[in-house]
């Protein structure tokens, strides 16, 4: 076990030469990605580019085959538990138990994360996501959009400083999209860091400060959003990923 390195103080995420293989299939082929604390990075890429694998490695769900990965200053290979305390993950899967109520799901995850003043925190966060009236309903009775909002509540329950979002807009209703934006804005304002993957160029460009494009298991392009418009991003995306217009 190790503490966060002093060299990592400015960086929320440091990825150098990351590879990940599943059997003979190489999903990540040397990814380099440095994300400063407080940055909002959006990663675009077609299906199979390696976006979800990258998010899973950063979330410590899967181990890298090679390369150096530090999240919140902790090496994900040696100190995954310490990294997880700092991470919140929203994915197209909700990680919620269908037969438990919204309250029971949040209580369960709250206990697993040692959230202090849990009841109070649950009340605060469930109000923020607009589900206070659904607290005692089983998750399976909630609509897809409501489940996704509850999933956002689950992800931010322990006040993570780094949010990893894997195509979070999937299944989100308009309210939930706006609410996600609000939650992430609050997080960014408090030095929170966000890494999001998406297919949707306009949506992603609107959300992030920095953009990156993944193609064939590598970061093929990385730029600050300031000097970028949707059309030039789209052209670059098509050129790098080889996808049809």
């Amino acid at each position: 076990m190790e503490g966060p390195s002093s060299a990592s103080q400015d960086w929320a995420i440091e990825v150098q030469g990351l590879t990940k293989s599943f059997g003979t299939h190489l999903a990540l082929r040397g990814v380099d990605l440095m994300v400063r604390r407080g940055d909002y990075v959006v990663i675009f890429g077609p299906n199979g580019a390696g976006k979800t694998t990258l998010i899973k490695v950063l979330a410590t769900i899967i181990k890298p085959s090679s390369g150096n990965v530090r999240v919140a200053g902790f090496n994900v290979r040696d100190s995954p538990v310490q990294s997880r305390r700092k991470i919140g993950v929203v994915s197209h899967q909700t990680f919620l138990y269908d037969n438990l109520t919204a309250l029971e799901n949040l209580k369960f995850y709250g206990r697993m994360y040692d959230v202090p003043n849990l009841e109070e925190r649950i009340h605060e966060i469930i109000t923020k996501v607009g589900l206070a009236s659904c607290l005692h309903r089983q998750v399976r009775t909630l609509s897809r959009g409501m489940q996704q909002r509850l999933s956002i509540a689950r992800a931010v329950l322990h006040r993570p400083s780094i949010m990893l979002l894997d195509e979070p807009e999937t299944g989100l209703d308009q309210y939930a999209t706006a609410m996600l934006r609000e939650v992430l804005d609050v997080l960014s304002a408090g030095e929170g860091t966000v890494v999001m993957t998406t297919h949707r160029l306009e949506y992603g460009l609107k959300m992030g400060d920095h953009v990156a494009i993944m193609a064939e298991g590598r970061i093929a392009y990385s730029k600050s959003k300031q000097s970028l418009d949707v059309d030039s991003l789209r052209q670059t995306y098509y050129r790098l990923t080889g996808t049809a217009r």
């Binding site: 410590t60 305390r85 994915s91 990680f95 269908d98 995850y109 697993m112 994360y113 040692d114």
Partner: peptide, 18 residues
């Protein structure tokens, strides 16, 4: 099987526990 549903096993693996 219950844990595989909706990726709950991944949810468990994300928790800061060994």
């Amino acid at each position: 099987v219950l844990e595989k549903d909706k990726g709950c096993l991944e949810g468990l693996m994300l928790c800061p526990v060994d």
